[in-house]
Amino acid sequence: MIELTGVSKSFGDQLVLDEVDFDVRVGETVALLGSSGVGKSVLLKHINGLLQPDSGEVVVDGMNVRHLPRKELAELRSRIGYVFQNGALFDSENVYENIKLGITDETCAADENYCHDRVTQCLKLVNLAADTASKYPAELSGGMRKRVGIARAIAGQPRYLLYDEPTSGLDPVNADIIDSLVGKLQEELGVTSIMVTHDVRGAFKVADRLALLHEGRIIAMGTPNDFMTSKEEAVRQFLERDFDMTRSWFELESGDSGENGH
């Protein structure tokens, strides 16, 4: 359970989040939509305490992230996988070491065999060849880096996953693979996810609910169906561009609540 109540955040005199209320239930996948620069990444960083709110509360798993002592915060963070928008891979370590650092459990991380198997498994999940493991981040393409970032985030088998645009910059095939990975983690392991995305089609496919961040507030939150039928001006505007495509897809799949199209 992730719960934000009245979270405000400004940088200098720029108010980015204005008393945001936002909640994600256990086992749910929520897609967070919003135009560029609206504060989606900022919101996501509040959830694992990389940013602290100016006011308001962030509660994850019943723990108030804002007032958590260091040790508990570290413990909580190890249960929350975070996929950075630009990868944020450790560039002095190779892919293997990067993903291995994602294995947060101490005993597992000390077991070389386990680590090797887990890294290989994670690479496979994000559709990367096993020989990528020995490469350095600088030797990878943008999309490959993004997927290594995802592999690192899931390596520690977190219960929560925060994806910051996991599919942007990926070709349609790999974007679909990542979308279904999100669905698979949810179904098989009950992972709770928030996915920031510009890919409305992908969002409709994997998310149980969608949220739209606009001018510092969540102005709409609901199922894909709610969104399709929303009368809210900002929502309609946001969906406009992808509207026809999304609607035709939605009609094709209707009945299915849009969890996983494939």
């Binding site: 990389l50 570290a74 413990e75 249960r79 975070y82 891979l89 947060t104």
Partner: peptide, 20 residues
């Protein structure tokens, strides 16, 4: 080294894994 890690969010990434 550390400055680059800071501005490319590598330090945040380390923290996000619950590591100090």
């Amino acid at each position: 080294e550390l400055g680059t890690m800071r501005v490319t969010e590598q330090i945040d990434a380390l923290e996000s894994l619950g590591r100090s």
